[in-house]
């Protein structure tokens, strides 16, 4: 039972990182039809920036986290301005461009990082360990899950309850009509790239609080983010978040109770099955502007 509880928390904290990614991925897709595979690199860059500030510059994890969020947000905005806005007419080109970006960002990170290609780690940001019915629950994991839930709640409120969210959803459903109604769609696309990247930066900072990372794990997380975004229906933020926590739990349970070396493959299997059975996702999603 203690082990089960511990695995639940483990699963939720991994799910939190995936959820932060999936939210950005699904929002960007919903608005532009772009499958942004380089999002995983933004996550990793966030983790490395948090590590760099925490270990090399100051000794405050919080400072590192803020720095990671802001810097990755700006990188995402720069990518939208510099590269992706030229590909919105042809999302498949945007996808290939994002594959190129993966290679560029990954190796830039290796080149610029003081640690090179090696694994980096920071001491747990919260040393305290909670005792919950015999299960030992590290404070960091509570922080990760709590922070993610708070951010996700704010995001969902903005998307589903505010007028900006309404404009965003309208643009996702029909970009041209929304533009005719006076919604500045281009600006919303920019904002979504910015917000998606801010979330990736946060995810990266939280991730390095959980476990050591190396520069090459971005691909693994982006594919999971897409798997859950697909499961939740691409362009459907709530579905993506629920699916993310589901996948995190499934992986944690699989590692504990089944064969751990296969847990990495769950996301791929789930994704391929969903694509085969319900190509537009389990919950109702959007096809994206281009697929219409």
């Amino acid at each position: 039972m203690e082990i089960f509880l511990q695995q639940v928390i483990n699963g939720l904290s991994i799910g939190a990182v995936i959820a932060l990614m999936a939210l950005g991925v699904t929002l960007i897709f919903g608005l532009t039809g772009l499958v942004m595979f380089a999002h995983g690199e933004l996550l990793v860059i966030g983790g490395f920036l948090a590590w760099f500030v925490t270990i090399q510059l100051s000794s405050s994890f919080w400072l590192g986290m803020v720095f990671a969020i802001v810097a990755v947000g700006l990188i995402g905005l720069a990518l939208e301005r510099g590269v992706f806005r030229f590909t919105f007419d042809s999302p498949i080109n945007g996808f290939i461009v994002s594959l190129g970006l993966i290679i560029v960002l990954q190796h830039l990170l290796v080149e610029l990082s003081p640690a090179g290609a090696s694994i980096v780690d920071i001491p747990a940001p919260i040393g305290k360990v909670f005792d919950l019915g015999g299960a030992r629950i590290p404070g960091t994991r509570v922080l990760v899950v709590g922070a993610t839930l708070a951010v996700v709640a704010v995001m969902l409120w903005v998307i589903y309850r505010s007028s900006h969210g309404r404009a965003l959803r309208a643009s996702a459903i029909d970009r041209d009509t929304a533009a005719l109604m006076g919604i500045p769609v281009r600006r919303y696309i920019m904002v979504v790239f910015l917000v998606g990247s801010l979330l990736a930066g946060l995810g990266g900072a939280l991730m390095i609080g959980l476990f050591p990372i190396d520069p090459f794990i971005g691909g693994r997380f982006v594919i999971k983010a897409f798997a859950v975004a697909l499961a939740g229906g691409l362009g459907n933020p709530l579905g993506a978040i629920l699916a993310a926590f589901g996948l995190g739990l499934a992986e944690a349970m699989g590692t504990q109770y089944f064969q751990p070396e296969w847990s990495e493959s769950y996301a791929f299997i789930v994704m391929i099955i969903i694509l085969l059975v319900r190509p537009r996702g389990l919950l109702t999603g959007l096809q994206g502007p281009a697929a219409r």
Partner: peptide, 23 residues
Amino acid sequence: PALRIRGHFFLIATFGFGELVRI
């Protein structure tokens, strides 16, 4: 899968297939 899904959805599926083969 290519019969049911098109464009970048199929690309994602093939990406998954490639990683699965490696795993």
